[in-house]
């Protein structure tokens, strides 16, 4: 089975340590009930709208924008090694109860570039099965919102 290789120095990241400066003006002030970080800095208006919908969705228990969090996925485009930084992690109660939430990685796409299919394939074929096979980081899934 495919298994994820964790960062040996820092295998588990935390929203606890996220702090950064930005000059971007599109931002969403998060609900403290659902997000540990007080702002989502948005790359597009769609992301702010996505936050609004997440906060009103009855299955969502927590979410975070993956910025300054260190969640990175190495992938290959042709022979070139690149890093994919997914947009959001959303913790969803999908019927397994509050102690076994689904960690859903969401990519919010304004438009789909050529590398999108390589990122999606890497997440679906390697990263998600790899992390799920570890068994120690809960259940994970990936979805692309086009």
């Amino acid at each position: 089975p495919i298994k994820a290789m964790l960062d040996p120095y820092n295998p588990t990241g935390s929203t606890n340590f996220v702090n950064f400066n930005t000059s971007k003006s599109i931002r969403w002030e998060t609900s403290s009930k659902l997000c540990h970080i007080n702002w989502v800095i948005c790359d597009s208006d769609w992301e702010a709208e996505f936050c609004r919908v997440l906060e009103s969705h009855d299955r969502v228990r927590a979410y975070v924008k993956n910025q300054g969090l260190g969640l990175e996925v190495p992938y290959k485009m042709g022979s070139e090694v690149r890093k994919y930084i997914p947009d959001f992690v959303v913790r969803v109660d999908d019927g397994h109860g509050p102690d076994d939430l689904l960690n859903l990685i969401v990519e919010v796409k304004g438009y789909r570039r050529e590398d999108a299919k390589d990122k999606k394939a890497t997440m679906e074929n390697y990263w998600v099965p790899g992390v799920n096979n570890l068994g120690t980081y809960g259940r994970w899934a990936f979805a692309e919102l086009c």
């Binding site: 709208e49 919908v53 969803v92 999908d94 979805a143 919102l145």
Partner: peptide, 16 residues
């Protein structure tokens, strides 16, 4: 975006 997000979450909830 709202129906799309609902659909997305319902779909992953059904398949996982």
């Amino acid at each position: 975006i709202e129906p799309a997000v609902n659909e997305l979450i319902e779909n992953v909830c059904m398949t996982h």
